[in-house]
């Protein structure tokens, strides 16, 4: 199977979504559903937090086309061994020509740290809102087919 790697910048209404994504081979793959293949081989500990991706049926599933405010997003999910092994964009808002951008520079004078969950009461939360909702919607749709 040919593998093709591509990168795009999705430009969304001044909101630029930089996505490096892995584009699996072209062509439709029919879902191969094997009911014996639910869940990982090793029985997970009961307190595993990975429940959302456990137990999907193997195959390749397409999510619905979702309007991402600045264009359509549609994702395809590949399930192997009951887990998500790949997510591919079939459609994404794309601004051809002007926005291709490759980056490999270092960040010399900046401090860095590993991110860590915090336990605190907060008044407000800052987070991204825009395109990700459409992505999640399309993904959720693809995953519902994999159940």
């Amino acid at each position: 199977m040919m593998k093709k790697y591509a990168q795009v910048i999705v430009v969304m209404g001044g909101f630029f979504l930089l996505v490096f994504f892995r584009n699996i081979a072209r062509g439709d793959k029919q879902p191969v559903i094997t009911s014996s293949d639910l869940g990982p081989i090793n029985t997970p500990a009961p307190n595993t937090s990975n429940a959302t991706s456990r137990g999907y049926k193997n195959g390749t599933y397409r999510g619905s086309v979702v309007d991402a405010y600045y264009g359509n997003i549609q994702v395809q999910v590949q399930i192997t061994g009951g887990r998500i092994t790949d997510v591919t964009f079939l459609q994404y808002p794309n601004d051809n020509g002007t926005s291709r951008f490759i980056n490999s520079q270092a960040m010399p004078m900046l401090k860095s740290e590993a991110i860590q969950a915090q336990n605190a009461q907060v008044n407000i939360i800052s987070g991204a809102s825009d395109s990700s909702m459409a992505f999640q919607q399309s993904l959720a749709d693809a995953l519902s087919q994999a159940k």
């Binding site: 994504f21 605190a120 991204a128």
Partner: peptide, 29 residues
């Protein structure tokens, strides 16, 4: 989940991003 807690007054704060899970994303560069 929250990964940073800030104490702010008289300012603005904004986040741009995507919630694509990192492990699904490949950077060919």
């Amino acid at each position: 989940e929250i990964i940073k807690v800030l104490s702010l007054t008289n300012c603005g704060i904004a986040t741009s991003g995507t919630y694509l899970r990192g492990s699904h994303i490949y950077n060919p560069v």
